[in-house]
Design a protein around this nucleic acid. Sequence first.
DNA 1: TACACTCGAATGAACGTTCAATCTATTTCG
DNA 2: CGAAATAGATTGAACGTTCATTCGAGTGTA
Lengths: 194, 194
Amino acid sequence: MAPRDKRETILQAALELIAERGFHDAPMSLVAQRAGVSAGIIYHYFASKDDLIHALYQQVEADLSRALLVGSPQSLPLEQAFTRIWLNAYRFYRSHPHQARFLEQYKHSPFHQEPANPVEAVEALVAGDFAFLRDVFSGDPARRPLKDLPFDVIYELTLGVAARIALRHTIDESTIEDQMLEQIAAACWQAIAR
Amino acid sequence: MAPRDKRETILQAALELIAERGFHDAPMSLVAQRAGVSAGIIYHYFASKDDLIHALYQQVEADLSRALLVGSPQSLPLEQAFTRIWLNAYRFYRSHPHQARFLEQYKHSPFHQEPANPVEAVEALVAGDFAFLRDVFSGDPARRPLKDLPFDVIYELTLGVAARIALRHTIDESTIEDQMLEQIAAACWQAIAR
DNA sequence: TACACTCGAATGAACGTTCAATCTATTTCG
DNA sequence: CGAAATAGATTGAACGTTCATTCGAGTGTA
C-alpha cells in the first residue's frame, strides 16, 4: 500500500473508533488493529495521538466545508442559498455519522481551541469558498439582511441546530421527511432574518 | 464531617475537575485530593467512577430544572414565560460554568443515553414542575401555539441555543448585554412560534 | 465490643510511545 | 544485467507511566 493510502487508512480507522467509543476508549493499539497495521507505524505518520486527532479534525472540517457548497448555493438568492446550505449541512452530518460524532466530541474536548473572537471566525469563513457571503456579514449593520446578532449566535441558530438534530437522528436511527427538514430550515431562517 | 457533607464534597470536587480537565484527565486520586479525602473513601460512597459521574449528572440536572423556574414563569403569558425560562437557562449556565461544561461533556460522551423518543422526553418534562406547559405540547397540533416541529427540534432551537451560547461566553469569558440576550431569546421564539 | 468510617500503599491492567530488528523497494555500480 | 548498498517502511515486544480499584489496618463513636 502506498504511504499516502496507509496514512488515510489509519485516519479512517481512528475516525471510526473515536466516533464509536470516544477518545479515551480508542487506544492506539486498536486503531492499528482496525487499520491492519502495527502500532508502531502510526508514529511514522503522526507525532503522537494528539497529532493524529488534530489531523483528523482538519480533514473532517475540510470535507464538511466542501459538502456545504453542493448545489452551488453561491448562485442562488440569499434565502434559497441559506436553505440549501442548511440542508447540505444536515445531510452531511446524517450521511457521515462518524464524522458527525467525531466533530461533536472534538469540539467539546480540551483539544479544541476556538478562534478567540467571532470576527476572526467570519473572516476565516469568507476568506475562501464562502466569499459570496461577505455582504451578508459586512457593511452597515442596519442594512444587512440579517438581524444584528453576534456571529456565533447566528451559527448556533442555524448550522449548529442542523448538526445537533442530525446527530440525534443518527443516534436513534430515526428518519425525517424532506418536507419537515425544509420546515426546520425555514424556522432557522426566521430566527436570523430581519 | 458528616457523611452527607463528605459525599457532597466529593461530588463538588469531581464536578470542578471534570469541568476543568475532562473526564479522562480527572483521576480519582485528584478528586480525592481536591476533596481533602483519601482515594479509597470515594468507593465507600460510590461504586465506581462511572457511578460517581452518573450521580453528578443527576444532581446537576436537578439544579438546572430548579433554576429554569426562577421568577415563576408558570404565572406568565406564554411568550413572556418563554423569555423568562430562556434567560433563566442562559444565566444558569453562565453562572455555573462547571455545571455547564460538565453537562456538555456528559451529553457528548458514551455515558449519556438519551430517552429513546421525544414523546418520553416531553412526558418526563411535563410530569413534574413543568406541568404548566402541558397545553403547549398536547392536543390538536393545528391549534398549538407552536409550529408543528418535533420536540427535540424545539429544544435545540431554544434551550439548546442558550446552553451553547452560554458555554461559549464562559470559555472566552466574554459578557453580553441584557438587551442582546433578550433579542436572542426573541429570535428563538420567532423560530418556534406560529 | 461492634460498627461505620477512613486511610494510603499495593495491585494489576491498560495505555502511549520507543526501538532494535527485519523487510522491501530503489539506487548504485561492476 | 545482477549484486551489493542504501534508505525508507514496518513490525511487535518492551518500557515506563498512569489509573481505577482493592484491602488490610487504623480511628472514632455508640
